[in-house]
């Protein structure tokens, strides 16, 4: 800034006017001391918060909810049993906590929706949730027959306890009953007597179709025996 500046603006000549302005400009440039503060960049969330709220159809969901099922398979089993056994009668008949439940060694009668009822000594109860099954053994036409039934099967109409074992069996599976020494043989007589008594009971209060069915099944069995 060697040349002196005039405080007054020269009016007549262009040259000093330009010089004057040029000098002024340099002065302003060199004297810039004020620093414009650089604003830190806002994060996306902050800008979202600041931004004016717009209406949008896009739904923003929160974090997913915590898992509803702690033990999924257990819950599924419970749901299936609720469907197949709404009254809980079948579960109770074979539950371990129920003192009135059927045990191995009892004579059980399984009524089926298709076909004749099957009766026999229960020699095994396989507890597997919805796949729970019972193994019944009987002797028909002098031939030993064993049948597994799924207790929750829709084909199984009902399961009745014909006779209980007097003494509790001290084994979980009575497979020794297959041996001739321990074989109970035919339990048809006991089952027939039971069915007759049930039929008589039903007869007092009006004969039900179920009783008739049972009697029919019984008759058939007698015929089979007679033939042989």
């Amino acid at each position: 800034m060697a040349p002196t500046t005039h405080s007054l603006r020269p009016l007549s000549c262009w040259k000093p006017i330009f010089r004057h302005t040029r000098l002024q400009k340099t002065a302003t440039r060199s004297l810039t001391t004020q620093i414009t503060q650089i604003k830190p960049k806002r994060t996306f969330e902050e800008s979202r918060a600041i931004a004016p709220k717009r209406r949008s159809n896009f739904k923003i969901l929160g974090p997913p909810p915590a898992l509803k099922f702690k033990e999924p398979i257990k819950d599924v089993t419970a749901a299936q049993i609720a469907i197949l056994d709404p009254t809980n009668a079948r579960s109770n008949l074979f539950s371990k906590t129920n003192p009135e439940a059927a045990h191995v060694g009892d004579i059980l009668l399984v009524r089926l929706k298709t076909g004749d009822p099957f009766a026999g000594v229960c020699i095994n109860i396989r507890r597997r949730g919805i796949d729970t099954g019972i193994l019944l053994r009987n002797e028909l036409t002098r031939i030993g027959v064993e049948m597994w039934f799924k207790i929750y099967s829709p084909n199984v109409e009902g399961i009745e306890v014909v006779q209980r074992k007097e003494k509790r069996a001290r084994r979980a599976r009575l497979t020794y009953m297959r041996k001739p020494k321990h074989d109970m043989g035919s339990v048809q007589n006991i089952v027939l007597a039971y069915q007759r008594s049930r039929g008589a009971l039903r007869g007092n209060g009006g004969a039900g179709t179920l009783g008739k069915d049972e009697l029919k099944g019984g008759k058939r069995k007698i015929k089979g025996k007679g033939k042989k």
Binding site: I143, V145, M147, W148, F149, K150, N155
Partner: peptide, 21 residues
């Protein structure tokens, strides 16, 4: 007509006889 080997049916029940015939 009869087998000692267990035979499973479509409804899940299983039948087993004491002899082969």
């Amino acid at each position: 007509v009869r087998t000692v080997k267990k035979l499973q049916r479509t409804d899940g029940s299983v039948v087993k006889f004491d002899d082969n015939a």
